[in-house]
Amino acid sequence: MIFNALKPEVEAIIKQSSRTIDEKLLDICKLLEDRVAHYNWVGFYFKNGNKNELKLGPYVGEPTDHVIIPFGKGICGQVAVSNQNFVVPDVSAQDNYIACSITVKAEIVIPIFVNGENIGQIDIDSNTPDPFTEEDERFLEFVCERVAQIIN
């Protein structure tokens, strides 16, 4: 499976001592968007200081106007509040969805925890309807665990 092949590559990115955290995060975004066919937009959002909002971090894909997302708004904002993975097989069926592009059909958001606190998330949009499986969730949890190691 593609995810097993990607894990060592994610580990290698995380361990690069000459790269900044943002450079490593961008490299992870590029890797995932490039190697997983149904990942069409890959980015990180992080808690914006003491505010109840998320701020866009490194990402690859179409530019987005959603640089700041209030907690509770959209899929990312809901994950900031719930602390749970959120898999959306059909974004058009979600009442509280913030549309980034008309081509997006599905979304998956996985929180990043540092010392038990939800400090951010990885957000992935797909132009393919209902593409995300439990394997996507487990792999992205792995990615978030590795990212948490360099954020703390």
Rank of each mutant, 00 (worst) to 15 (best):
P8T: 01
P8G: 06
E9G: 06
E11C: 03
I13T: 05
I14H: 04
K15N: 09
Q16W: 01
S17C: 01
S17V: 06
I21S: 04
I21T: 10
I21A: 11
E23Q: 15
L25E: 07
L26F: 13
D27S: 14
C29W: 06
C29E: 01
K30R: 15
K30G: 04
L31P: 15
L32E: 03
E33F: 07
R35T: 01
R35P: 05
V36S: 03
N40L: 02
V42W: 04
G43E: 01
Y45R: 14
K47S: 09
G49I: 07
N50F: 08
N50Y: 15
N52C: 10
N52F: 14
L56F: 08
G57V: 07
G57K: 05
G57C: 14
Y59H: 14
V60A: 06
V60L: 14
G61R: 03
E62L: 07
H66K: 13
V67R: 14
V67G: 05
V67F: 04
I69T: 13
P70R: 12
F71S: 05
K73Q: 13
C76E: 04
G77L: 13
G77T: 02
Q78K: 13
Q78I: 07
V79K: 05
A80Q: 00
N83C: 12
N83V: 09
N83G: 13
N85K: 05
N85T: 14
P89L: 04
P89H: 10
S92N: 14
Q94C: 04
D95K: 09
D95E: 08
N96Q: 09
Y97W: 13
Y97K: 07
I98Q: 10
A99M: 15
A99W: 01
S101Q: 00
S101N: 14
S101L: 05
S101Y: 12
S101V: 10
I102Y: 11
T103L: 11
T103A: 12
V104T: 11
V104N: 12
V104C: 12
A106S: 12
I108L: 10
I108C: 06
V109Y: 00
I110N: 05
I110E: 05
P111S: 07
V114E: 10
V114F: 11
V114D: 04
N115W: 11
E117Y: 13
E117P: 13
I119A: 00
I122W: 08
I122L: 07
I122R: 06
I124V: 13
T128K: 04
D130G: 09
D130Q: 15
E134M: 11
E135L: 04
E135F: 02
